[in-house]
Design a binder for these strands. Structure first.
Lengths: 156, 156
DNA sequence: CGCTTGCTTGGAGTGCACTCCAACTCTCTA
DNA sequence: TAGAGAGTTGGAGTGCACTCCAAGCAAGCG
């Protein structure tokens, strides 16, 4: 297992799992390992623009090319995009994700830095969850008021 | 107590605020009902720019003015800004908040619309909490991997 | 051969939510 | 009376995360 294997791979070995009945998230278009950009668009929901932009800003490991210069994404790339998608969902700024990608490229000696970055982000996510739950209570309260008013007017 | 404009003009605006110990939520600078923009800045954490911008885009009810044309915010305005702040924390787009503000201005007959808007938003918030919790699990998993590596190297 | 489809590029444009600027007025204090 | 300091305005600028564009290349098909 190489450095990049462990680093860019988010979850299970994905290509091997073709027997899986209906993977809900990110169906891998073929069982193979060289996907065109449009296949990746279909698999990830990102636009081709965004995929190329991610590459330009250094958010992707080097994507392989066909003999005609077209991108060929590997399963590892897809796994990486999976992680990026999760981090993005949590509102991590792209700049931070780029930083993380740089750490991954730099090699195993950045493990502590990566752990720290993710731990800090986890704290952030926890804080946000708490925040959202607090707001949920306020929302409930206001909705109750409107619902009470509605029930009162329906009775009348 | 009759609150005249000149009475407020002579009151040093910031003086009252500097003493404030650190009440958790939105300390109301004076016990009164006509706050200057800088008092509202101190109370809400929003910038004066943002407060004026909120007004321009229709996110505020009409803010009262002093005889010299300066804004004087009421406690009701502060309460409204409080709600806006909560909604903003949950990532509600400003356009939606403006829509809600319009409904409020339109009167009580918009109660059902308001209830619907808030209910839809609550669903959104719930979805986001679930999303964040899902990501938390992935974060935990990756942090574990790095932590294991660190402990292994510390033992070695 | 021409046509369509899919991909390539750098750079420009978009939408959101602020954020700042220049030029001005008003009031208070020295 | 001069200057500091808080406030006013419309419009321009900023940063982020895309999103689109124009021009061009390569492969497959009739």
């Amino acid at each position: 297992m190489t450095v990049t294997d462990s680093a860019y791979a988010t979850t299970a070995p994905a290509a091997a799992v073709t027997t899986c009945a209906q993977p809900l998230v990110h169906p891998r278009p073929t069982g193979q390992d060289r996907y065109t950009i449009s296949e990746v668009v279909a698999a990830t929901g990102l636009s081709a623009h965004t995929l190329r932009w991610y590459e330009r800003i250094g958010l992707m490991p080097h994507v392989d090319r066909s003999h005609t210069g077209q991108r060929r994404y590997s399963n590892r790339d897809l796994n990486w995009l999976d992680l990026v998608g999760k981090l993005r969902l949590t509102g991590m700024p792209v700049a931070d994700m780029v930083h993380y990608a740089e750490l991954v490229r730099a090699g195993e000696h950045t493990f502590p830095d990566r752990e720290e970055l993710l731990t800090a982000h986890r704290e952030d996510v926890r804080r946000r969850i708490a925040e959202l739950q607090g707001t949920l209570a306020i929302l409930d309260h206001k909705i109750d008021i409107y619902a009470d008013a509605r029930r009162a007017s329906e009775r009348a």
